[in-house]
Computed example of a mutant assay.
Amino acid sequence: MGDYVRFNLKGADELSARFKGLTEEIRRKVVLPAAKDAMDIVLLDAKDRAARIDDPETANFIPANLAMIERKAIGEEVGAVVISVGVRMRKRGQKGGNTFYWWWVELGTEKNRAKPFLRPALANNREALFKEFLSSAKYQLIKLGVN
């Protein structure tokens, strides 16, 4: 099972106060695009890191299979918006090919050392991710006309 990262946003008191007065539907309209904008930073960094690691001699290409998806079932379970960046499983012959081996690259094996590209993409961009989330959430509030 994947690692979960949970943070408490500090310095976002103004945004938090606005959120408490909103309906669940409006909150979702603000948080979902803001979370996608923020996680796009992680996605782009992960693609860059994977491109530097991936073997150019093979037909399969891990960066082409990296994607960002909303985890609705988990989000409903925890009562939040959950956005995930990971590697899609594709069939041979499709864009990027079948990169079933990506977790062996990320985590390593007993014979090959790990060459992580997803975990550092998140770890090195935490501050930028939260700044982007806050600015995007404020923009979404203004766009919806919420004071």
Score class of each variant (00 low, 15 high):
residue 145 G to S: 06
residue 46 A to R: 00
residue 38 A to Y: 05
residue 106 E to F: 05
residue 6 R to S: 13
residue 115 K to H: 10
residue 104 W to Q: 14
residue 59 A to F: 02
residue 140 Q to E: 15
residue 77 E to R: 13
residue 26 I to H: 06
residue 136 S to M: 13
residue 77 E to N: 07
residue 32 L to Q: 12
residue 8 N to A: 14
residue 67 A to I: 08
residue 17 A to F: 06
residue 37 D to N: 14
residue 105 V to K: 08
residue 2 G to D: 14
residue 20 K to G: 15
residue 124 N to I: 04
residue 48 D to P: 00
residue 73 A to R: 14
residue 60 N to I: 00
residue 23 T to L: 02
residue 2 G to Y: 10
residue 108 G to V: 09
residue 37 D to G: 11
residue 76 E to S: 10
residue 77 E to S: 13
residue 133 F to R: 09
residue 126 R to H: 02
residue 101 Y to V: 07
residue 43 L to Y: 02
residue 135 S to D: 14
residue 93 G to Y: 06
residue 136 S to R: 15
residue 57 E to Y: 05
residue 50 A to D: 00
residue 83 I to M: 09
residue 134 L to P: 00
residue 85 V to K: 01
residue 90 R to N: 13
residue 46 A to P: 04
residue 51 A to S: 12
residue 74 I to T: 09
residue 91 K to Y: 05
residue 22 L to S: 06
residue 16 S to T: 12
residue 84 S to F: 04
residue 89 M to K: 11
residue 33 P to L: 06
residue 120 P to Q: 08
residue 88 R to Y: 00
residue 61 F to N: 03
residue 145 G to Y: 02
residue 77 E to C: 00
residue 131 K to I: 08
residue 45 D to C: 03
residue 28 R to D: 08
residue 58 T to G: 00
residue 94 Q to E: 15
residue 73 A to D: 14
residue 115 K to W: 07
residue 123 A to C: 01
residue 71 R to E: 13
residue 20 K to N: 11
residue 112 N to C: 01
residue 15 L to A: 12
residue 116 P to A: 09
residue 122 L to G: 02
residue 43 L to C: 03
residue 100 F to Q: 08
residue 69 I to K: 07
residue 103 W to E: 04
residue 11 G to V: 07
residue 33 P to R: 06
residue 79 G to K: 05
residue 106 E to N: 05
residue 81 V to N: 07
residue 97 G to Q: 03
residue 122 L to H: 05
residue 40 D to T: 08
residue 58 T to Q: 09
residue 35 A to H: 04
residue 12 A to S: 15
residue 10 K to Y: 13
residue 90 R to S: 07
residue 124 N to M: 10
residue 20 K to V: 11
residue 24 E to Q: 15
residue 138 K to Q: 12
residue 44 L to E: 13
residue 13 D to T: 11
residue 21 G to N: 11
residue 146 V to T: 08
residue 132 E to I: 08
residue 77 E to K: 15
residue 26 I to C: 02
residue 18 R to M: 13
residue 109 T to G: 09
residue 90 R to F: 04
residue 36 K to S: 04
residue 28 R to T: 11
residue 24 E to V: 15
residue 43 L to S: 01
residue 69 I to G: 00
residue 3 D to W: 08
residue 132 E to C: 14
residue 75 G to R: 09
